[in-house]
């Protein structure tokens, strides 16, 4: 099953001049400084940046998990800003998928039940053909009846990927999906994510620290101090690394300057 990928044509998720401020007064942290990004449909986007630069915050606001202080978020044509919890839940059920660094599988359920969980929560049935495709792509057919505790980290993360894919969401958000995996399992998960973008037109946004992981993406967005500072298309690991080094130098000199002042 293939879909025509219309790169640059449709936008899967969009942030328009988004500000996110935590706390107030002395303890105030501005996590996002007027960020505007467009995530194109059928693209694999990586978000990179130094620790504390606002990657997770951006992703959470894009996914409707967190509210914004100012600005607007869209998923497809739906405006998230100002939506009620119930509507946001509905949106997450139908249009958003998640992959977490910690896998976050339910230990009481089998791999299969975990995969089908978002659908059963929403009271929907899986499309059997798509389900079979997903299972085969993640290569878990012989592990379906196992509990998470009987699976390796890599296998658990593949279950989590399958769980995100099976409901065919508009966007899948992945926060450091390979952060807890060794390089081999990481590579498996990443190529699997890339395949689902290439072959099935899935939109994926991934936060990562790893230039190698970022090289699987179609596009890399660089964040620093809550602002989009750079971007790279069809990146290679080396190119990403160079950009990051440049960023670190900028951040350091900025920090020195603020200390001096």
């Amino acid at each position: 099953m293939t879909t025509t990928v219309t790169t640059g044509q449709a936008v899967a998720a969009r942030a328009v001049d988004v500000w996110k401020v935590y706390g107030s007064g002395e303890a105030q942290v501005i996590a996002l400084h007027g960020v505007s990004v467009e995530l194109e449909r059928g693209q694999f986007t990586a978000i990179m940046g130094p620790s504390g630069s606002g990657k997770s915050t951006l992703m959470h606001t894009l996914a409707g998990l967190d509210s914004v202080t100012r600005g607007e978020i869209f998923i497809g044509d739906t405006r998230l800003t100002g939506m009620s919890d119930g509507d946001l839940t509905n949106l997450r059920r139908t249009k958003v998928g998640f992959i977490f660094q910690q896998f976050n599988l339910l230990p009481t359920l089998t791999a299969e039940e975990n995969i089908l969980l978002p659908l059963s929560i929403a009271g929907r049935k899986a499309d059997p053909k798509w389900y079979e495709t997903v299972i085969d792509t993640v290569g878990l057919r012989d592990r379906l009846k196992h509990r998470p505790s009987q699976l390796s980290g890599g296998q658990q993360q593949r279950v989590a990927c399958a769980r995100a894919l099976v409901s065919r969401p508009e966007v899948i958000f992945a926060d450091e999906p390979t952060g807890n995996l060794d390089s081999r399992s990481g590579a498996e998960v990443l190529s699997f994510l890339r395949n689902s973008v290439r072959e099935y037109g899935q939109t994926i946004v991934m936060v990562t620290h790893d230039p190698n992981a970022a090289s699987y993406a179609d596009r890399v967005i660089f964040l620093a101090d809550g602002q989009v500072v750079d971007e790279l298309l069809a990146p290679s690991a080396d190119a990403v690394l160079d950009k990051l080094k440049g960023l670190d130098a900028k951040v350091e000199s900025a920090a020195d300057a603020s200390q001096a002042g």
Partner: peptide, 10 residues
């Protein structure tokens, strides 16, 4: 948190 994230209602 995960359950809520993937769509479990309150």
């Amino acid at each position: 948190g995960m359950l809520r994230a993937i769509g479990l209602r309150r």
